[in-house]
Write a protein that binds this DNA or RNA. Sequence first.
DNA 1: CTGAAAGCGCTTACAG
DNA 2: CTGAAAGCGCTTACAG
Lengths: 361, 361
Amino acid sequence: MAERVAPLRLSDVAARAGVSLATASRSLTGTPGVSAAVAGHVRGIAQEMGYVTNMHARSLAGGIASSIGLIVSEIGDPYFSEIASGLIGVATEHQRMVQISHAGDPDAVLAQIRLLRAYRVGAIVLAGSGFSDPALEAAANAELASFQASGGRVAVIGRHHISADAVLPDNVAAGRSIGTYLLGLGHRRIAIVAGPATLNSVADRVAGTLEALGTIETLGSLEKPGALESPGASVSVTHHEFTRAGGAAGVAALVEAGLLGGDGGGEVTAIIALSDVMALGVLAELRERGIRVPDDVSVVGFDDIPVAADVALTTVRLPMAELGAAALRMAMLEPASRPRRKTTGHELVVRASAAPPKARP
Amino acid sequence: MAERVAPLRLSDVAARAGVSLATASRSLTGTPGVSAAVAGHVRGIAQEMGYVTNMHARSLAGGIASSIGLIVSEIGDPYFSEIASGLIGVATEHQRMVQISHAGDPDAVLAQIRLLRAYRVGAIVLAGSGFSDPALEAAANAELASFQASGGRVAVIGRHHISADAVLPDNVAAGRSIGTYLLGLGHRRIAIVAGPATLNSVADRVAGTLEALGTIETLGSLEKPGALESPGASVSVTHHEFTRAGGAAGVAALVEAGLLGGDGGGEVTAIIALSDVMALGVLAELRERGIRVPDDVSVVGFDDIPVAADVALTTVRLPMAELGAAALRMAMLEPASRPRRKTTGHELVVRASAAPPKARP
DNA sequence: CTGAAAGCGCTTACAG
DNA sequence: CTGAAAGCGCTTACAG
């Protein structure tokens, strides 16, 4: 292995081109005030020497071109990888690099925001859901506010307790839509297999669903499935991890509570999984237990991740890639006097996993 | 909106703590040579002031802590998001930031490598497949070599024409494994719905499969499905995009060529999709056309992406997350005198999408 | 153990 | 249009 070769500096290019450092800098950054001929010459030399700007130096010296920080819960989750894909597409258009962080809990989010600040990113996009309890987000939000105060741009996806531009997937309306659909199909005993009760996205989806089902009561976190009577339908909610395994655990909890897989009395005829990823777990666990979909029980989800079509899952489509793209676009705008909000739409996607309930013997 | 507040500098912390800049720096970086008492005091002050290091300045001044560059074809593709997830996990453990780049073709890869170099990343992990034709990779590889010469670390996933640490998914063996399985099931007329013929991953998977089927002949790119007679089985190969849509297009091509969906004569009894994502497209198109799986035709894939289980797809599992994690671990090791190579295993995962061929009337 | 000073590689007023 | 010089915020020999 050869000795380490120090990277070329702009001064090397300037020397070779026979111009000053300042002129070389202006030529490469495209700053006006250099004759086209000289600028072209310098650029040619730089290219031929294989010169690569040192972004750290540029950034320190006050040149802009800062990168974008993206914080997701788990990039392996299709919901987040779709968001990331949309965001990276926009970033690439604008020649911006994106630095990506995994952060599953509020402490990790705080740590990642600090790291991103250390890298002096120009904007931070927070893709994970906000928390119902402001206290859980307090530290992260303070850090974000401080970042904004120093000129950083922030955009969040979903409801957060912070004054920042936000792209809001319409979780409440999506819940209403899926609830209405199930009610129209004739379901009156429904179970919601939900993610953590601490998340706003969960609270909103549940609230919208309950509203459609005839109640606007909101729910706390329930260890065991909790039952709520509503004029329209009786609804049980059980909270688990926002993962495939969480969906499977939800089915297990329903069975254990006697709401599923028994003799049919008092049983649930439809399951609303609060994300498609959870729905995948629900479907798998149902299959495992020999409970047929939609014959024995209907299943619906949220998001319409790409594979939902492959398992014929009825769901509500949320424009994930667009969420990511829109969030970044907002973050690249000049800050407004008050935070911007953009609410995105949703669309019921009917496939084969839900059907009218069978009459029970 | 308040006036922009300039971020705190280390000198602010030093002043407040009553020590020199040098001592403050040493205290925060943990460099030995400062009394524990002073170091602790400085750290306390910094914390309480909310000081955040400027990584650009640190990096310029010669401090290390460089970030990691990851280049993927498309983060929305489960294969790459799994790799990214594994890699980010390791990066987080080591407090390294990861900068992620989308690059679908060789030109984009080159551009992204240059950008990553501009950001002075410490290591670059190239996750996309290499190309059979060295010329296509030449420019990117030269850039990578130059990056290595200046002290940068490089790790690639899969076969590339470059001297760098590599993690090699055993595509040939995986192909052999799936080919053998299909042969054992009794299939003798098989179609391969492949990704672009220019990719090494495609070439390797095809080669392994053909080897198992009784030939080791390699294939060029074929506009129309190309037929190969082998002692064991007759195989047709058709190349399309490495996407869901590509898989669907593959089925269409097979039907058009009279190899599928006709009266049964000369028809294929099994389809090997060269990735699970393509297999998803194959399954969807088959469903669309009323061709039943596995009754009318068996379908198998490669990778075992998370949803493969949900569509009961028989496939060969490749450890994607481990590929990403291993690549980064290698890249963080001191460079060896000669590139390291690590070959990962594979595992046949039998599910319901493949069965013995039905006897034809 | 602690500090003053040089230097990392750029950009940008400030002169000419 | 072009250049000499200051400065961005750190780290690290070099002295003490």
